Simulated scan of single mutants.
Amino acid sequence: MQLTFSPVAGVGVDDMFIMIASWEQSSRKAEKSDTKSRLAETYREAALSVTITTLTDVLAFFIGTWTAFPSVRSFCLYTGTAFVFCYVYVITFFGAVIALNHKRVKGNRHWITCMQVEVGKKSCLYNACCIGSCSSESPEPETSETESEHPMSVFFQKYYGPFLTGRWIKLLVVLLYGAYLGGSIYGCTQMREGIDLRNLASDDSYVIPYYDDDDRYFSEYGPRVMVVITGSVQYWNESVRNDIEACTRDLENVAYVDKNLSLSWLRVYTGIA
């Protein structure tokens, strides 16, 4: 549950930020002054980005359902499905919340109780917490509304952009990217095929000590190979048992098999019986 919540919450919050940023951008267009037009403009700008990011995430997790591990398959299935519902909620419910919150701010209503709040006689902190705007004046009519630019947009436009285009900064960025690329190539050369089965179990699982002991005492023997007869066998027939025993001896005579480590339940059963 926790593993599923983290990626879904991250993508959901990212989609919310995209929607809010598009909503703020829509306020700068004079022809998009009413709530309906602004919401339509918001979806026009944000829906494509939200859809593409969600689609790629859903495809990635649904492809993961093809794995042979049941735990990983269940995780990918539930997470991919959660992404679908998250996308539906963002493009439906969250858009409605934005429109309702806009009407609340225009009406000078409290952000929890939605009761009318008196504006102009309180501090900026009071107005920001109760109304959502630090302005001490009542909002103008909806047709003439102008909203200030977001502080993050101002930061990237006026400070980060000019800083990044400096001569030495550009050289530093190229060097850092070269170091990152070199480290990535080196890491790819150090990758080894296989999977550590300990990573598929919880930290307090009994499986982890088992794999530790198996690696410590039996790693030199390699994996155990089992031979199974899937058809119906007449074990009470002595000739059938002799044929199975002959087949077992043939397998033990293979150069890659240590006959001293072979185990046959039929031998044990007939020895006891």
Rank of each mutant, 00 (worst) to 15 (best):
F93I: 14
T54F: 03
S74A: 12
I63T: 07
L55V: 02
V90G: 01
T42L: 14
W111V: 09
T42V: 14
T67C: 06
A82W: 03
L100P: 00
L55R: 01
A40S: 13
T42C: 15
S74C: 03
G64T: 04
Y89A: 12
K106S: 11
F75Q: 06
N101W: 10
C114W: 10
R104M: 05
K103G: 00
V84C: 14
R104N: 07
S49L: 09
A40C: 11
V84L: 15
A96W: 13
T56M: 05
V84N: 09
I91S: 11
R44T: 09
E41H: 05
H110I: 01
V84E: 09
A60K: 01
V72H: 04
Y43P: 00
C86A: 15
A82D: 11
R38W: 08
D57T: 05
S74W: 11
V50E: 00
T65W: 02
Y78R: 13
I52H: 07
A40W: 08
E45H: 04
F62A: 05
E41P: 00
T42A: 08
S49C: 04
W66E: 03
Y78T: 13
G64S: 00
S71F: 06
C76K: 04
N108E: 13
R104H: 05
G107Q: 11
A96H: 12
H110A: 02
F69I: 13
F62M: 11
P70M: 02
G95A: 08
S71K: 12
V72M: 09
T81H: 04
S49I: 11
L100V: 05
Q116R: 14
V58E: 02
A96P: 02
F75W: 08
K103F: 00
R73G: 05
V84M: 14
A60F: 07
G107N: 13
W111T: 05
A96Y: 12
F94M: 10
L100Y: 05
E45K: 09
I91F: 10
M115A: 12
G107S: 13
R73D: 01
Y78F: 15
L77V: 06
T67M: 04
T54I: 00
G95L: 09
Y78P: 01
G64A: 02
W66T: 09
W66D: 01
W66I: 04
G95K: 03
A60I: 04
S71I: 10
Y43M: 14
G80S: 06
Y87A: 15
T113D: 08
V117E: 14
N101G: 11
C76R: 03
Y89G: 02
L39A: 11
E45N: 10
L55C: 03
